[in-house]
Simulated scan of single mutants.
Amino acid sequence: MNSNYTLRDEIRDYWSLRAPTFDEQVGHEIFSEEERQAWRDLFLRHLGPGEGRRALDLASGTGVISHLLHGLGFTVTGLDWSDAMLNQARAKAAKRGADIRFVMGDAERTLEQPESYDVLVTRHLVWTLVDPKAAFREWHSLLKPGGCLLVVDGDFVSDTIVKRVIRFVEKLVPGLAGAPHAPNAMRETHERILSRVYFSKGAQAQEVAGLLREAGFARTIIDRDLKPIHRAQAKNLPLLKGLERATQHRYAVLAVKAST
């Protein structure tokens, strides 16, 4: 492999390959109004209505979260480093007539202007970060005084009793857990990447919150009540996958920058 080909390059290329089927999967795209409203409720609870405030959707993918924020009245920029994801996001925004700015950029090194956003949102990004300490300092710098970062993430790595039961049942009745998210070759790439990122042992809410405070955020709030989202998602998942989702360590962390 080219010695200049970094872990970040591998992560970018992996998600570019996943782009064509990204919106087919529960947990990526939203498949019911019930789930959409649950996401809206989460954002309103922590961020309030948009009212024209500037929001940055980090690692925006195909723009699912960008559209939710736009619908709440935010002026939205979606940032992603995959051309394939951005192409789909722009096409989706054009089809819906949504005035969302999508830009190419690394979520860990955005090149966006300091203190230019009121709100930052990430969904399922933090657990894949190579250098979260540097990323969190960067995100802190992008927020205006008093601005908010909302991290929606989870520990998708640690083994649990439920995971072990699911693997056992799957061996007895192959296919009962539903189709895998990605073909075998992509799963192998995913596992290779995961073994080398910062949270290779799993991203726990308390550790994420602690790193955010180290990065300069004045206060953090951990919200573990994501059940309305997971219940809605479970209706479009096989039984075992829905059970796994409901029992995973998933959370939101609100981090607030000091006002002065």
Rank of each mutant, 00 (worst) to 15 (best):
T160P: 09
V121Q: 05
K171C: 06
V173E: 01
P114V: 06
F136M: 10
R167K: 15
D118Q: 12
Q204R: 15
E138D: 10
S141K: 13
G210F: 02
T110H: 08
M104P: 00
A232M: 07
L211E: 11
A203F: 02
I221D: 11
S141H: 12
K227M: 13
A232S: 13
M104I: 03
R167T: 09
T128R: 12
V103L: 15
Y117L: 04
A234S: 15
V162I: 14
H190R: 14
D106T: 04
A93R: 08
F168M: 12
R231Q: 15
D225F: 12
I193H: 11
K144G: 05
A218H: 13
Y117P: 04
I222K: 01
K144Q: 14
F102E: 07
R192D: 14
N184W: 11
R109E: 12
L172K: 12
D106F: 06
G147N: 03
P180R: 03
R109S: 10
A215N: 06
G202M: 04
D159I: 05
L150K: 08
A179Y: 03
K163I: 00
C148M: 11
Y117Q: 13
T220H: 03
T122P: 01
G216T: 09
S116D: 10
V169D: 03
T128I: 10
A182D: 14
A94E: 15
G154D: 08
R101S: 09
T160F: 05
P180Y: 04
G147R: 05
L176T: 14
P183D: 03
A135P: 05
A234H: 04
G147L: 02
K133M: 08
T189Y: 00
F102H: 08
K92W: 12
D106C: 07
S141W: 04
K235S: 12
M186H: 10
P183I: 02
R187Y: 02
V165F: 13
F102V: 04
A215D: 08
S200F: 10
S141T: 11
D155C: 05
S141M: 06
L149C: 01
A182N: 05
E191F: 10
M186C: 00
G105T: 10
D106I: 05
S200G: 00
G210N: 09
E207P: 00
L142C: 03
I229G: 00
V157S: 10
D99W: 01
G178A: 06
L211A: 02
L172P: 00
Q206W: 04
P114D: 11
R213S: 09
L125M: 11
S195P: 01
P174N: 04
A215M: 05
D131M: 01
L237C: 01
V151R: 08
G178M: 06
